[in-house]
Nucleic acid binder design. Structure first.
Length: 481
RNA sequence: CUGGGUGUGGCGCAGCAUGGUAGCGUGCUUGAAUGGGGUUCAAGAGGCCGGAAGUUCAAAUCUUCUCACCCAGACCA
C-alpha cells in the first residue's frame, strides 16, 4: 500500500519514456539538475552536474585533438558585418539566425557587429593575415567557446540559442591533406561517441542540400535516439579552397606560385549530452556511461548509525578514490537508503555500492549496476580492482546494448512506402539517385530526411527509392531532431 | 513562424463558470524515533497569484494588452 503510493509519486515526477518521449526528456534534464532555463528566451544554464559531464567529454576530445597536433585558440565574439557578408553561400545559410550588436553604450555603431553563429569568417580573416609560406602550413587550431543562433524553437541541449561547443579550423597545403583532416576528425568524433559516450553512430557524407553552407563536402556522425529519431551529433567539413578564395588566404607554394590554401572545420557541441540522455535513459532517469559520469561509483553506508559502518564504508570509498575513480560517499543521514537508491539512479550513476553491518562482518559489499540493475557481492579487499573492471564492463555493455537496439531498427527500404514504414521507429537504408528533387520529394511524402551516406556503399538495390531510376548512392534516411 | 496548452510559496497543483480572510501535496527548517528500495510523528518558516492597464466598494477570479515557458508541426550543431 505504502509502496504503491511511493511509486506513484515517483511516476508523477518523471513521465514514462514510452508514453511521451519528449516530455520524458525534458523531465530528466530538469529532475537530474543538468540544466535550467535562463531569463533570455532559448537560452539555458548548464548546472554543475551538466557542466561536469561536458568537462569530461571535452577532456576526451581535447586530448585527442592535441594528440593529432591541434592547438587551442580564443577568437573574439563579434564579427563585423562586412566580413560576415563576404561569403555569399555562408551568409545565406546563417543570416536568418544571426544576432546583432548595434550599439555600444549610447553610441550607435557605424557598422553593426554579428555575435558569432560560428567562427569560419574570423578564422578566415586571421588566417589570411598569418599565412605566407607553405612552410607555415598546416594551421591546426581549435577553440572551445559558445556561439549564438537565434533559434525559433529550442530544447535544452538539443537546440538552444546559445550553445557551447568546440570548433576546429584548419588550413592545409593540398586538397588531399584537407580531405584527410576532415576524415581524421570525423573518426575522432566517432571514437569519442562510441567509446566514451557508448553512443553508436553512423558515419558518412551529407547530401549536397544538407551540407554546411560554404563547404565542398560535409561528413557527420548520426546517432539513433530511443524514439528512433536521428541526432546529428557532430560534423566535419572539407572546404577545399572555398573560404580561402573569399577571404584571400594564400601562400607561396614550394613551386613559388601564390596558391589558395585548403581548409576544414569540425565541431561537436553540448548537444552530445542530449544524445547521451536519449540513447541510454530509462524510466528511472539518466543512465551515464562510466567514462563521462561525474560520479562513477556511489558508496552507500547502510544502517549507518550502527557502530563502524560509516568508517568501514568510507575506507572502501577512499580505496576507490585512490584507484583513480570518481566516487561519491553518500552518508546523508537525513534521507533513507531507499531514497538514495532512487536518487542516484535518477542521476545515472553507473554503479552503486551498498555496505552495511552484515557486509562488513563478512568482508563484503553489494554492487548494483545502473544499466542492468544486476546485484553482485564483492570482497572488500580487492574491491577497487573489481569495481574498475565492472565499470569497464558497464561501459562496453551500454554500447553493445545501444548498438543492438539501433541495428534492429535500421531497415533496408526499396520504395517510399518502405521508407515511411522504416522511419516510424528507426532509420531506413535505401538507394538514392542523387537528385535534389527526389530528396525533397522523399522528405515531403514520408517525412524522412537524408542523414548521411555510409562509407560502405555496398548497394542495397539498384534504383532510387523515389524516382525508380538507376541509383548508385546508398543513403540513410530518418526523422531527425 | 503556425496550431494547442500552461503561468498561484523552491517544485507539482487546486481555487477562477457565480469577484468577498490564498489553500493542498511535496520540498525546506528544528527535534525525536527510524535506517538493506522514495520512513514516521511533532512543531515551524515561506506567496502583493507572470507583468501592465482597466471595470468594481472589492480582482488570483471579469476585460484588454503584453511577456515567458511547454507540446505538436515548418527551418537548423
Amino acid at each position: 500500500m505504502a509502496k504503491n503510493k511511493k511509486e506513484e509519486s515517483f511516476v508523477e515526477q518523471l513521465t514514462k519514456r514510452d508514453e511521451n518521449f519528449a516530455q520524458w526528456y525534458t523531465d530528466v534534464v530538469r529532475l537530474t539538475d543538468l540544466a535550467d532555463y535562463a531569463p533570455v528566451r532559448g537560452c539555458m544554464v548548464v548546472k554543475p552536474y551538466g557542466t561536469a559531464i561536458w568537462e569530461l567529454i571535452r577532456d576526451e576530445l581535447d586530448r585527442r585533438f592535441k594528440a593529432t597536433g591541434h592547438q587551442n585558440v580564443m577568437m573574439p565574439l563579434l564579427i563585423p558585418e562586412s566580413l560576415l557578408m563576404k561569403e555569399a553561400e555562408h551568409v545565406e545559410g546563417f543570416a536568418p539566425e544571426v544576432a546583432w550588436v548595434t550599439q555600444g553604450g549610447k553610441e550607435v555603431l557605424p557598422e553593426k557587429l554579428a555575435i558569432r553563429p560560428t567562427s569560419e569568417v574570423l578564422f578566415g580573416y586571421m588566417y589570411a593575415k598569418w599565412l605566407q609560406s607553405w612552410r607555415d602550413l598546416p594551421f591546426l587550431y581549435n577553440q572551445w567557446c559558445s556561439v549564438l543562433r537565434w533559434e525559433k524553437t529550442t530544447r535544452p541541449f538539443l537546440r538552444t540559442s546559445e550553445f557551447w561547443w568546440q570548433e576546429g579550423h584548419t588550413l592545409h597545403e593540398t586538397g588531399e591533406e584537407s580531405a584527410e583532416e576532415t576524415q581524421r576528425m570525423l573518426e575522432i568524433y566517432r571514437e569519442v561517441a562510441e567509446d566514451c559516450l557508448a553512443m553508436p553512430v553512423l558515419t558518412g557524407r551529407k547530401s549536397e542540400q544538407e551540407k554546411f553552407a560554404g563547404a565542398v563536402a560535409t561528413y557527420s556522425i548520426e546517432a539513433m535516439m530511443q524514439d528512433g529519431k536521428a541526432l546529428q551529433a557532430g560534423t566535419s567539413h572539407d572546404f577545399g579552397t572555398n573560404f580561402a578564395e573569399v577571404y584571400d588566404i594564400k601562400f607561396l607554394s614550394r613551386e613559388g606560385s601564390l596558391t589558395h590554401a585548403h581548409g576544414t572545420s569540425w565541431g561537436v557541441s553540448t548537444r552530445l549530452i542530449g544524445g547521451v540522455i536519449m540513447t541510454h535513459g530509462d524510466d528511472r532517469g539518466l543512465k551515464l556511461p562510466p567514462t563521462i559520469a561525474p560520479i562513477q561509483v556511489v558508496v552507500l553506508p547502510i544502517a549507518q548509525h550502527k557502530p563502524g559502518v560509516i568508517e568501514g564504508a568510507k575506507a572502501v570509498a577512499d580505496a576507490l578514490v585512490k584507484a583513480g575513480l570518481r566516487v561519491k560517499f553518500d552518508d546523508r543521514d537525513s534521507v533513507s537508503a531507499g531514497y538514495k537508491f532512487n536518487d542516484w539512479e535518477l542521476k545515472g550513476v553507473p554503479l552503486r555500492l551498498e555496505i552495511g553491518p552484515r557486509d562488513l562482518e563478512n568482508g563484503q559489499l553489494v554492487a548494483v549496476r545502473r544499466d542492468t540493475f544486476e546485484k553482485q557481492t564483492l570482497d572488500i579487499t580487492d574491491a577497487a580492482e573489481k569495481v574498475s573492471a565492472l565499470l569497464s564492463t558497464i561501459q562496453k555493455d551500454m554500447y553493445e546494448s545501444a548498438k543492438a537496439m539501433r541495428d534492429r531498427r535500421i531497415t533496408n527500404a526499396a520504395n517510399l512506402d518502405e521508407i515511411t514504414a522504416a522511419i516510424q521507429g528507426g532509420f531506413a537504408r535505401g538507394m538514392w539517385c542523387g537528385a535534389d528533387e527526389c530528396e525533397d520529394a522523399i522528405k515531403e511524402k514520408t517525412g524522412a530526411y537524408t542523414l548521411n551516406m555510409p562509407f560502405d556503399q555496398t548497394p542495397v538495390g539498384d534504383v532510387c527509392v523515389c524516382c525508380g531510376k538507376p541509383a548508385a548512392k546508398v543513403m540513410h534516411f530518418g526523422k531527425k531532431y
